[in-house]
Computed example of a mutant assay.
Amino acid sequence: MSTPMSTSMSTPLNEGPLHEAVDRRVDQRVHRIPVDDLLPADSPRTGGEDLGHAQALAACGDPLPPIVVHRPTMRVIDGTHRLRAARLRGQRLIEVRFFDGSSEDAFVLAVESNTLHGLPLTLADRTAAAARILAAHPQWSDRAVASRTGLAAATVGALRRRTAPPDEAATHRIGQDGRVRPLSTAEGRRAAARLIAEDPGASLRAIAERTGLSPGTVRDVRRRTDDGEDPVPPRQREAERKAVPEQAPRVSAALPASGDGGPGQGLEALVRNLCQDPALRLSDAGRLLLRMFDVQVAGTRSRQQILAAVPAHRAAMVAAAADQCAAVWRDLAIRMRSRSGAEGGDT
């Protein structure tokens, strides 16, 4: 394979505005490499290339914008038709920008790019792409997947319900902004109702920041409490009621549980117990701790998928990072046990 020859920094990745995360993940330096060094794309286009579109690009005579290539595999991510046009023109070299992420993220980038510019993806293409992204990134929110595929969030939600494994028990999802949010706001609503009762003059934003809810949700809680209603809507309460018996067998089967809430209790049950404590839920540091535990629970459930997703050349680095995380958790556990003993244990 020939060594890429760098050229000057050029225009942004594409003429259309791309998702902000795309710009951060793609090396903006432009290289000229032989067209024969490139492999076919792992394309979201289920129907393959549109030869007529490639011929039109080749005939226009204008310089072709750089294509995006997955450096580890040299597969085209964005620019299949531009590559075919370059070959039709008889070009030996083509300008590229490299992406160094995983194959799964390369596919997400291909979907994002083809959704935002160039020859549009069909509805069938975008739906198939969303199903694949949900399988690779089940922790992403419906809106996060929708923003990358050009579908409505409700469509992604319906697709998730049809394709999700029957034992999926996620409690949080990662949104478009990278923040982790609970799937259910029931506990946050109850906490907001208590804060409103304690301080009726508190602003919506202040209560939202303390509970992790949106100001709009806090407004709904205030309206409900003013009307003498339960702060949690009936549908949400019913979902909570149904979720309890379904989760209990999974906890006891996954980890040994004890009835006293002690160290032998299953991790999920321990975390659920901690989530009931207002002292943790209503402080920034407490909510951070609960989010850390929740991510740990999600990682425990998905351990096999995580092991399979890490490429061999990153295994040692992931192991080292896991060791460091384990050391941090161990230090925290030692300090907490010492503090519990000094304060006379649990009451």
Rank of each mutant, 00 (worst) to 15 (best):
residue 4 P to A: 00
residue 8 S to R: 03
residue 10 S to A: 15
residue 13 L to M: 08
residue 13 L to F: 09
residue 13 L to N: 05
residue 13 L to E: 05
residue 14 N to V: 15
residue 18 L to T: 01
residue 19 H to D: 09
residue 20 E to Q: 01
residue 23 D to Q: 14
residue 23 D to N: 14
residue 25 R to K: 14
residue 28 Q to R: 06
residue 29 R to W: 04
residue 31 H to T: 07
residue 31 H to M: 06
residue 36 D to M: 14
residue 40 P to N: 04
residue 43 S to Y: 07
residue 44 P to Y: 05
residue 55 Q to V: 14
residue 62 D to G: 13
residue 62 D to P: 00
residue 64 L to C: 06
residue 67 I to L: 13
residue 67 I to W: 04
residue 68 V to F: 07
residue 72 P to T: 02
residue 78 D to A: 01
residue 80 T to R: 06
residue 81 H to C: 12
residue 88 L to W: 03
residue 90 G to F: 04
residue 90 G to Y: 09
residue 90 G to N: 07
residue 93 L to N: 01
residue 95 E to D: 03
residue 96 V to H: 02
residue 101 G to F: 00
residue 101 G to A: 11
residue 104 E to W: 02
residue 107 F to I: 00
residue 112 E to K: 09
residue 112 E to P: 02
residue 120 P to A: 10
residue 123 L to S: 10
residue 124 A to H: 13
residue 127 T to D: 10
residue 132 R to Y: 05
residue 132 R to A: 12
residue 133 I to V: 02
residue 135 A to E: 09
residue 137 H to R: 13
residue 140 W to M: 00
residue 143 R to S: 13
residue 145 V to I: 02
residue 147 S to K: 08
residue 150 G to P: 04
residue 152 A to C: 06
residue 153 A to S: 02
residue 157 G to D: 05
residue 157 G to W: 07
residue 159 L to R: 07
residue 160 R to W: 06
residue 161 R to I: 11
residue 162 R to V: 10
residue 163 T to P: 03
residue 165 P to T: 10
residue 170 A to W: 08
residue 177 D to C: 08
residue 178 G to H: 10
residue 187 E to Y: 11
residue 191 A to Y: 01
residue 193 A to E: 00
residue 195 L to G: 09
residue 196 I to L: 15
residue 196 I to G: 05
residue 203 S to C: 05
residue 203 S to V: 00
residue 204 L to A: 08
residue 207 I to Y: 08
residue 211 T to M: 03
residue 212 G to R: 07
residue 213 L to E: 10
residue 216 G to Q: 06
residue 217 T to K: 08
residue 218 V to D: 09
residue 218 V to K: 04
residue 219 R to P: 06
residue 224 R to G: 01
residue 226 D to W: 11
residue 227 D to P: 08
residue 229 E to K: 08
residue 231 P to N: 02
residue 232 V to T: 09
residue 234 P to L: 15
residue 235 R to T: 05
residue 236 Q to H: 13
residue 236 Q to V: 13
residue 242 K to D: 15
residue 245 P to T: 03
residue 249 P to C: 08
residue 252 S to R: 14
residue 253 A to P: 12
residue 254 A to C: 11
residue 255 L to E: 11
residue 258 S to A: 15
residue 258 S to H: 12
residue 259 G to V: 12
residue 260 D to I: 00
residue 260 D to T: 12
residue 261 G to S: 06
residue 263 P to D: 12
residue 265 Q to K: 06
residue 267 L to G: 07
residue 269 A to Y: 01
residue 272 R to E: 11
residue 272 R to P: 03
residue 278 P to W: 04
residue 281 R to W: 10
residue 285 A to V: 15
residue 287 R to A: 06
residue 292 M to C: 13
residue 301 R to Q: 15
residue 304 Q to V: 12
residue 305 Q to M: 10
residue 306 I to F: 14
residue 307 L to P: 05
residue 308 A to G: 13
residue 308 A to W: 09
residue 309 A to L: 12
residue 312 A to D: 12
residue 312 A to V: 12
residue 314 R to W: 07
residue 325 C to A: 15
residue 325 C to I: 15
residue 326 A to W: 01
residue 339 R to V: 11
residue 340 S to P: 02
residue 342 A to E: 07
residue 346 D to I: 00
